[in-house]
Write a protein that binds this DNA or RNA. Structure first.
Length: 342
DNA sequence: CCGGGCAA
DNA sequence: TTGCCCGGG
């Protein structure tokens, strides 16, 4: 789930109005996974149609997309392609953790501990290729564009922002900054409330804007140093140096200048250092060039056929969502905000 | 996660 | 209006 760069980032709270008229590249996997894991019943079961086809991801997608669209925010979904081989270790670890969570979910159900059951169920979430295909089909029906990245979606999205095709990348993951996305948006949600795991507490979640240039400026480091720092802390693609977190990491990278010198000083080693850097730095290698994105009106009949027919959503819910693409709110899209968005 | 419904 | 709970498929 990326690295924790929160301590080093300059976070600016942002509201929906500031995003009006903006084109956002959505880290599709990131968003769908959140839906799949959180839209669940008390016992932990996801939503499904009468044939047992899971629909939580589509349920979340419909409300998120329609709402943001009614606010004049244009989304372009960016899907992950083939993961870099160095990610294998992480993916295998995740798979094991999910197996364990599956067992614990079943155990919690037997004991009747619903809260624990739900929590464990969330951890079992696996976004399948089928779900990804279903999502693309629904997006097509809604007229919402999507892009298939050859490798990491975040690299693709970052490139599109740098190329001026999009305004920002929407993701929870700070990796987005490593890929050089000039602007990222976190917590692209509607209601600001979220339940804290294991606790009765609710906290307010605000949308956040993070400008890469400001992060570098604030820490007095270069993009290359940010990447080296992340590698020292540990990324999805490599284990970090034990005892080095954001705090010690920033200190030592500024002191030594680059990862090699840090490693020398710490008498440590990191495999594939150059390959890791290349992946974050030469993003274009891992992105498709000349992609085009177009926003269209939803095809109502197709949307209803899919969501109400195949997935058995209620007609009123789908109608309501579709209205947000046409109804009174549509005018908001025209009130494009000016300025350089920084 | 989010919207609708209903209570305060 | 605001807050909380529930159901969604």
């Amino acid at each position: 789930m990326g690295i924790n760069l929160k301590d080093l980032t300059v976070i600016k709270p942002i509201n929906l109005a500031e995003l009006r008229g903006k084109k956002l590249g959505v880290d599709a996997y990131n968003m769908l996974y959140q839906f799949l894991s959180s839209i669940r019943q008390p016992d932990g079961m996801p939503l499904q149609n009468s044939e047992g086809v899971v629909t939580s991801h589509l349920r979340g997608l419909l409300s998120r997309v329609s709402y943001l669209n009614s606010e004049g925010i244009k989304l372009c979904f960016v899907f992950d392609g083939v993961p870099h081989p160095l990610k294998r270790r992480l993916l295998d670890e995740r798979k094991e953790r999910k197996k364990k969570a599956q067992r614990e979910w079943e155990e919690a159900l037997i004991v009747g501990d619903l809260e624990r059951a739900r929590m464990k169920a969330q951890q079992t979430s696996i976004l399948t290729d089928k779900m990804i295909d279903e999502t693309k089909e629904v997006l097509d029906a809604l007229g919402v564009p999507w892009v298939q990245a050859p490798s990491e979606g975040e690299a693709q999205a970052a490139t599109m922002v740098r190329d001026g095709i999009l305004d920002a990348v929407a993701s929870q993951d700070f990796d987005t900054l490593l890929y050089g996305a000039p602007i990222m948006i976190r917590n692209l949600t509607l209601s600001g409330k979220r339940k804290l795991p294991r606790q009765q507490k609710w906290i307010n979640i605000e949308m956040e804007k993070i400008v890469l240039e400001k992060v570098l400026e604030e820490n007095q480091i270069t993009q290359e140093q940010l990447i080296d720092l992340a590698i020292l802390i540990g990324t999805d693609y490599n284990r970090g140096i034990h005892g080095i977190g954001p705090k010690k990491g920033i200190k030592i990278i500024k002191e030594c200048g680059n990862a090699e010198k840090c490693l020398e000083k710490l008498d440590q080693q990191i495999d594939n250092l150059d390959e890791l850097r290349k992946m974050f730095l030469d993003t274009k290698i891992y992105s498709t060039k000349n992609v085009e994105v177009n926003w269209k009106e939803p095809v109502k009949s197709k949307t209803i056929e899919l969501l109400c027919g195949k997935y058995e959503f209620s007609k009123s819910r789908v109608d309501n969502a579709l209205d947000k693409f046409f109804g009174p709110g549509k005018g908001k899209a025209e009130q494009v905000t000016l300025g350089d968005f920084k």
